[in-house]
Design a protein around this nucleic acid. Structure first.
Length: 476
RNA sequence: GCCAGGGUAGCUCAGUGGUAGAGCACCACAUUCAUAACGUGGCGGCCGAGAGUUCGAUCCUCUCCCCUGGCACCA
């Protein structure tokens, strides 16, 4: 039985959702929707969720005068709302404070510990009391913490448990070379392989000073490092949900490039230690700038999903994010370009074409005989989509092709001038052709613009097709 | 510094050893079924710089300049 299991990262709850989170989750939604058509709804499992442990969450909660769990209970629903707003349909929303998750994480750690992949060691480094965490030497500015320059960092040692990443990384490298799992795009694959070849040290997977976390089962004075806890979420949900074992391993794990190292190396090391199958594909997309500037709190240019949806509508926002630049690369979200793309592609393109065909049908008294033929995804579109090239895939709907696509249909209508045709039989044939094309286009739009596709089906799968308000009103 | 990738029309990018392409923007024409939309045509580029190989290079080789990304625990 074919199946498709895909994941987004779980988002850290010390921030509310912004367009960066939305970008990854939207991409996953498009893929999930596509595979639901291809393999059947019941054979796709798409999870997202929130990461709720760790010192940073505890700190953010304290700022708001809440306990960490209370704080997470406020922020986690914000993510669910954002995904609802963007019409993202996940199958399961997973929170790392779920007791079922915590239990399995402990079991996994115990198992790996017993197998000898975890040992006790000393973690040492510069500890910032303000941040309550160890700092990287490279992070220090004039030997001080950039966030707390008035406090002297303390060189501190603590007992920690370490994962034998050095040993496991050799197996990882071998498995990457044997294509047991694939890192995409190729550029990222090369980067990871190069780093692995340079050699990797063992990593600390527990913390002594962080109380907000899952306790290390054999040493309650330590908590499990939040990253290990978070990575295991892809595994625990499969384990604690009934009848989900068949979905393992993940077919696709999507993320932004900043967390690729954790996913392509540390995560794989854990799975190898557990003797579990590895994910088939890990895909890291790039970062974007907003009008050429880095998105940051201090610049005040952080965009929320709501802002985009308010201005461009749900499917407008989805379209603009998916076509802003090639998925996988870094790019720019230019807000002025958004408006011009919206008007050119959605208002003047898709929306206008739907309007003109509907009006032609309405005024000519055309009676649509609803076709029972099953529709399919355009082959080139499907190929691009399966390679995660959303921009290109959507391009096949818009660009001119033989007997298909928006441009072709607009040209066809202009050439044949159906409003001048008096021969009823010929007029019927032409209008039927147009309507079938519109329905084909709607079918292919489904993974990307589900709401629009649905509206078109509703409007055109009728005997008497009526004109409707614009799908995408022009905006200035 | 090391390792990748890139520099092509105003913008975003595609492309090939032999008179340079698309979309958007802009201009003109045509047109009304349609959201002043659609269509047709046009404007617009010493294809980063220099040298080499070649009958011929944007495409191959070398040098240089510029840009971007990665470089170990960063949630």
């Amino acid at each position: 039985m074919k199946k498709f299991y895909l994941t987004t990262p779980i988002y850290y709850v010390n921030n509310v959702p912004h367009v960066g989170h939305a970008y990854t989750t939207l991409a996953a939604d498009v893929i999930a929707r596509y595979y639901r058509f291809k393999l059947g709804k019941e054979n796709v499992f798409f999870i997202t969720g929130t990461d709720e442990h760790g010192a940073n969450v505890a700190q953010a909660a304290a700022k708001h005068d809440k306990s960490p769990k209370e704080y997470a209970d406020i922020v986690a629903p914000r993510f669910m709302e954002a995904w609802k707003l963007l019409n993202i349909r996940y199958d399961f929303f997973h929170r790392t404070t779920d007791p079922r998750h915590e239990k399995i994480v402990q079991e996994v750690l115990s198992k790996i510990y017993k197998k000898g992949y975890i040992y006790e060691g000393i973690y040492e480094g510069w500890y910032c009391i303000g941040c309550e965490k160890f700092l990287n030497i490279t992070d220090l500015v004039d030997g001080k913490c950039p966030l707390h320059p008035t406090r002297e960092p303390v060189f501190q040692k603590e007992k920690n448990y370490f994962l034998k990443l050095k040993e496991l990384s050799k197996i990882i490298l071998k498995k990457i070379k044997e294509k047991e799992y694939v890192i995409l795009p190729l550029k990222r694959h090369n980067e990871i392989v190069n780093r692995l070849k340079q050699g990797v040290d063992d990593i600390s997977i527990s913390r002594a000073g962080v109380s907000w976390g899952i306790p290390v089962p054999w040493d309650p004075n330590q908590t499990i490092y939040v990253w290990i806890d978070a990575l295991l979420f892809y595994y625990t949900s499969i384990k604690f949900l009934s009848n989900h074992n068949r979905f393992w391993p993940p077919d696709l794990q999507l993320m932004a490039k900043d967390i690729l190292w954790f996913h392509s190396v540390i995560w794989q090391a854990i799975l190898i230690a557990l003797n579990e199958k590895l994910p088939k594909t890990i895909f890291a997309h790039g970062f974007f700038t907003i009008d050429g500037q880095k998105m940051s709190k201090s610049l005040g240019n952080i965009i929320s999903p709501e802002q985009l949806v308010n201005k461009y509508g749900v499917d407008g926002a989805r379209y603009l994010l998916l076509t802003a630049y090639e998925f996988g690369n870094d790019g720019d979200l230019s807000l002025s370009k958004f408006t011009s793309s919206y008007n050119a592609d959605l208002a003047n393109g898709l929306g206008n074409l739907v309007s003109r065909v509907a009006k032609l049908c309405e005024t000519s008294g055309f009676v649509h005989e609803i076709s029972r033929r099953s529709r399919k995804f355009n082959k080139t579109l499907a190929t691009s989509l399966e390679k995660f090239n959303f921009d290109k895939a959507l391009g096949y709907i818009w660009k001119s092709d033989i007997n298909w696509g928006l441009k072709w249909l607009d040209q066809e209508i202009n050439e044949n001038k159906p409003w001048q045709i008096t021969d009823k039989k010929l007029l019927y044939l032409k209008l039927n052709l147009y309507v079938e094309n519109i329905l084909d286009i709607a079918y292919n739009l489904q993974p990307f613009l589900p709401q629009t596709a649905e509206k078109i089906f509703k409007q055109f799968e009728e005997h008497n097709i009526k004109s409707q308000p614009p799908l995408f009103p022009r905006i200035s």
